[in-house]
């Protein structure tokens, strides 16, 4: 609760600054100010995300699940997040084609990482079937 207010203020100020800068001679900076604001926001939130992941890891250990599945899910989340971030920046710069390609690349990578889990699920299904 007390940490969301500075972050919200930062985002609003960055949006106002970006609109202001866009009118001047350097519209490139209108792209870089939201980028910097997004990076700062995420860097502020990231430590708490790390704590959440530690708790998830403990739950996984208690449940006796394979550690490999959790790390795969985390990797997929990271790839998706970075691709989304990059795609939004590209879309802000009116480069929709580039954004779509980045997201496609992320989909391919996620598919490649999720494939071992899918194979494991299929193998367990096959074991259940007579």
């Amino acid at each position: 609760m007390q940490t969301i207010i500075p972050l919200a203020a930062l985002a609003i100020v960055a949006a106002i600054m970006a609109v202001f800068v866009k009118e001047g001679k350097m519209p490139v900076l209108a792209l870089m100010i939201p980028l910097a604001a997004g990076i700062i926001l995420f860097l502020r939130v990231l430590p708490q995300l790390g704590e959440i992941f530690v708790i998830f890891q403990q739950l996984t250990e208690k449940a006796g699940l394979n550690q490999f599945y959790l790390s795969t899910i985390l990797k997929i989340m990271a790839v998706t997040y970075i691709a989304e971030f990059c795609g939004q920046v590209c879309r802000d710069a009116n480069q929709n084609a580039l954004a779509t390609k980045v997201e496609f690349a992320a989909k391919v990578l996620v598919m490649a990482m999720a494939l071992p889990i899918m194979v494991a699920v299929l193998e367990s299904v096959l074991r259940l079937l007579p």
């Binding site: 500075p6 600054m17 100010i33 910097a36 700062i40």
Partner: peptide, 10 residues
């Protein structure tokens, strides 16, 4: 990380 970078860029 502080927010001074945004003001610097502006």
């Amino acid at each position: 990380i502080d927010a001074s970078l945004i003001f610097f860029l502006t």
